[in-house]
Amino acid sequence: MPSLTYKGRTFTLQDQQSILEGLENQGEVIPNSCRSGLCQSCLMHAVSGTPTSISQQGLKETLISQNYFLACKCIPTEDLDVSLPSDSAVSIQTTVLGKELLAKDVLCLRLLPQETFSCNAGQYINVVKDDLIRSYSVANLPDADGYLELHIKRLPEGRMSNWLHDSIAIHDPVTIRGPAGNCFYNAIHDRNFPIVLAGTGTGLAPLEGIVTDALDKGHDGEITLIHGAMNKSGIYHEEKLIKMADFHHQFTYIQSLMESADPANSDLNAEVRSVLENLDLSRVKVYLCGSPALVNKLKTRVFLQGVPSYNIFSDPFITATTADWDVFPRNS
């Protein structure tokens, strides 16, 4: 078994054990959230030795070339000496530019980067608060606007979300990392393919960003955005999106409310299916964000309806306790 060195101490990992698990077993605190390679909060640096390529999937080129890797995905094949990244190497400072409530539990947070920071609408950044690192998607066009807009849902006892909701104030410093993720508008050959976007809750953040980006770049294929929520209280930016749809003939905005009395309007899966039925399935690009269970299910359904997997983009918002979604149910 390969050996691992951390803070000058060397130990041996167990068979098939990730570096994250190995270090936790040694009593070390390593930031993490999704534990499945999606949120990048467990970013570490190999001071010597080469991390596995699987543990570098999704990282920026500059990070890969400097031997950064994701501890939750790294089952090393050789001896490694690892450290947590220093803030100065991978993070940047921002200050809080604005804070407002969009819905009962949804905070809109605007962050002003203190240095050049480029990012696509729909990608995500990581907010760093000591050992706590959490991902939030970018809902605006940061390169044009000069700031980042995030939509943060307050989770019961959620450590980061409650801190952002309650404790930080205008002008406070906030450390971030990133960007990462490939859920963004990407038109290589033409701008007339159809786009369907569906999400629940703050899954709207990246989707709204992608729509804004596409319209800004003159996309002229049909764009349909479906925002799902339990009931009306989970809906936000309604007025803004209705206005956008009025202004841009190619853009349609639909709400899907699970508690709606109208059955035609209460099933997000059915809504997505019926929108797709009228589109060219070989060309449509589908974006799915929000609740992991829903995103996962929709992804499979959309694929089975005939959309090629390479045209389906998704960001399941995995939280620390939904991290198990990806593991096989051991006893079902």
Partner: peptide, 29 residues
């Protein structure tokens, strides 16, 4: 291979003799 995987995986996912093995798996992976 990319084309073949698209066809093959659709067949697996629609076959009730095997598709329950794929419940709760991440499609991209």
């Amino acid at each position: 291979v990319n084309t073949a995987v698209e066809i093959f995986y659709r067949k697996m996912l629609t076959d009730e003799r095997v598709n329950y093995f794929f419940d709760n798996t991440d499609m991209d992976k």
